[in-house]
């Protein structure tokens, strides 16, 4: 599977799992289940980037591997700053 296929798969998997868990959370009125469902949803974009990063490495597309790596680092810095603030 190329990077588009694998990234699309991970995005769709996360959002479907997230929505399914959210629906269960609403039906059982459980905030814990809702929390995990929302977590699965919102982690989808970041997991998509990681998937793309791995796919690009396997394709030996080094220019875009570096781009993805820089983005991951910048996002990690941004989240760290947000946590500290």
């Amino acid at each position: 599977m190329n990077d588009s296929g694998s990234t699309a798969f991970v995005l769709r998997l996360c959002v479907c799992i997230g929505i399914a868990v959210i629906v269960i959370g609403l039906l059982t009125d459980s905030t814990d289940i809702l929390w995990f469902g929302i977590l699965a949803l919102i982690c989808a974009p970041f997991l998509g980037i990681l998937t793309t990063f791995v796919s690009l490495i396997s394709e030996k597309d080094w220019y875009w591997v570096k781009v993805a790596a820089v983005l991951i680092v910048v996002m990690a810095i941004g989240i760290t700053i947000s946590i500290i603030q």
Partner: peptide
């Protein structure tokens, strides 16, 4: 989604999201 992720993850970890509102909104948005 990537841009929004950086902001919303902090809200979730802080417990600052109204989960039932977010759940209804998310199902509709999907």
């Amino acid at each position: 989604g990537i841009t929004a992720f950086s902001g919303v993850i902090i809200y979730l970890l802080n417990g600052s999201i109204l989960l039932d509102y977010a759940a209804g909104m998310a199902i509709g948005a999907f």
